[in-house]
């Protein structure tokens, strides 16, 4: 067992190393400048009063769970964050997210590595809200080995770690297409993209190791039943799961994951602003009053 593990690890490391150099080669080869231009999206969380669309973040979580989580971790998040104030599953009736029924169910859907308390053997058990999102791969070489040498980045702060933020993530997800003729035929010879690379003009160098992750209807969105506030219920139809819709939703989720305190930050910020305006006015009045008889 241990021997096999060592071999796998060494193999993984070697593939990783060669993949690294392959990446460099690909960058040099595909360095042609593309005319791709990122478009700014009209996100609900933009601006001084922007907030997250909770239903979109919930759908985005579903996209993450069913698609992204195959390769990408969320190392800085715990399940409980989903049910905390500002989170997509926050419920004012259960302000402690550990009691949140929906969050409990979502956590239960994951397997968390643990140690058996009696035997000390490594085991896997269903998650609880207090657990962190689990690592997808045990280590970096393993991650690279499973992905042709490329390392799937952690997504916890991805909208902050990329220039362009949420606009860039959305743009990247919707910009996959076939290699255009002029790209293929540059320098007069037919160009073969390295195996495992995919054409995406939104990515620097236009060649990305991640295959197009989203296709239409890869996810089944469920309609949601909510209380209408008059004792009855109301059904909100789920939007069609197009690539654009899926990309928007998962980007909204990642924006929340990267900045979960945004709503409270903007709210407090507004109060601070209001206070400082009044305080400045009072300070100014005091200053003028004290100086009224002073020639200066």
């Amino acid at each position: 067992m241990a021997n096999r593990l060592t071999k796998t690890l060494i193999g993984a490391a070697l593939i990783g190393l060669s993949g690294l150099s392959l990446g460099t080669v690909a960058m040099a080869a595909g360095g042609g400048k593309s005319d791709h231009k990122m478009e700014h999206q009209d996100w609900g969380f933009n601006g001084m009063f922007g907030t997250y669309d909770r239903l979109a973040v919930q759908r985005g979580y579903q996209v993450y769970r069913e698609v992204c989580a195959a390769c990408h971790a969320l190392e800085h998040l715990s399940f409980r964050h989903l049910g905390e104030k500002g989170g997509p599953y926050y419920n004012p009736k259960t302000p402690n997210p550990n009691d949140n029924v929906e969050v409990k169910a979502l956590a239960n859907d994951w397997l968390i590595p643990d140690i058996d308390g009696e035997t000390g053997d490594p085991i896997e058990r269903p998650g609880i809200p207090a657990d962190k999102f689990p690592d997808i791969y045990p280590n970096e070489p393993a991650a690279r080995a499973s992905n042709g040498g490329a390392l799937p980045p952690d997504l916890s702060v991805i909208t902050k770690a990329r220039t362009g933020g949420a606009d860039y993530i959305y743009d990247l997800l919707v910009s996959y297409k076939d290699m255009p003729h002029e790209y293929k035929m540059k320098d007069g010879v037919e160009y073969e993209m390295p195996i495992g690379m995919n054409y995406n003009p939104a990515f620097e160098g236009s060649e990305i190791a991640m295959a197009a992750p989203l296709v239409d209807d890869i996810i089944e969105y469920a309609s949601i039943t909510v209380s209408d506030g008059h004792g009855g219920t109301e059904t909100i139809e789920a939007p069609a799961a197009t690539v654009e819709q899926l990309s928007r939703d998962v980007t909204e989720f990642l924006a929340w994951a990267g900045d979960p305190k945004m709503e409270v930050r903007k709210k407090i910020g507004f109060s601070v602003f209001l206070f400082l305006f009044i305080f400045s006015a009072l300070m100014f009045a005091t200053y003028k009053n004290i100086w009224r008889d002073v020639e200066h």
């Binding site: 407090i268 910020g269 601070v272 400082l276 400045s280 300070m283 100014f284 005091t286 200053y287 004290i290």
Partner: peptide, 26 residues
């Protein structure tokens, strides 16, 4: 009180800029 009050007003205005970056463009 002359300059403590004048400086106090300036500090309050400066804090407005500070707060803008802190809360809206961190």
């Amino acid at each position: 009180p002359y300059y403590t009050m004048k400086d106090g007003f300036a500090v309050a205005v400066f804090l407005l800029i500070f707060a803008f970056f802190m809360f809206y463009l961190p």
